[in-house]
């Protein structure tokens, strides 16, 4: 249960001004599990390109995830309705899509 307690404390610290309910905590935990499990499974798709790459990527991913817990709150903060963040991610995505597709298509 220590993970749950850590999580609860983290959220309480973060949103101490507002009242917390079970719904928020259960939602945050569910979202956390979904994000972690689906990211790891998605990384497995790389095995169609190279098995070694998959291993490296998964190890890096696990390290990143462990060092960034809890993910869901951070993701939530990144995806609020502010135009600055949306615009930033839009331009970044444009760059990533164009360069990745251009260089990996050959």
């Amino acid at each position: 249960m220590s993970y749950y307690d850590d999580f609860l404390n983290f959220i309480k610290e973060r949103y101490s001004k507002k009242h917390m309910t079970n719904e928020n905590v259960s939602g945050a935990i569910a979202s956390e599990l979904i994000v972690i499990s689906s990211l790891l499974i998605t990384a497995l798709l790389l095995r169609h390109i190279s098995v070694l790459l998959t291993g490296i990527v998964i190890i890096i991913l696990i390290m990143l995830i462990v060092s960034n817990l809890p993910l869901s709150i951070k993701l939530f903060d990144e995806q609020d309705d502010s135009l600055d963040k949306m615009m930033f991610y839009t331009v970044i995505t444009l760059g990533i899509i164009v360069s990745l597709i251009y260089w990996s298509g050959f």
């Binding site: 507002k18 939530f76 609020d80 309705d81 502010s82 135009l83 600055d84």
Partner: peptide
Amino acid sequence: SAHEILNNKYDMGD
């Protein structure tokens, strides 16, 4: 200012 007008954050419904 876009920063003042369009950054109204959507919190967890609080």
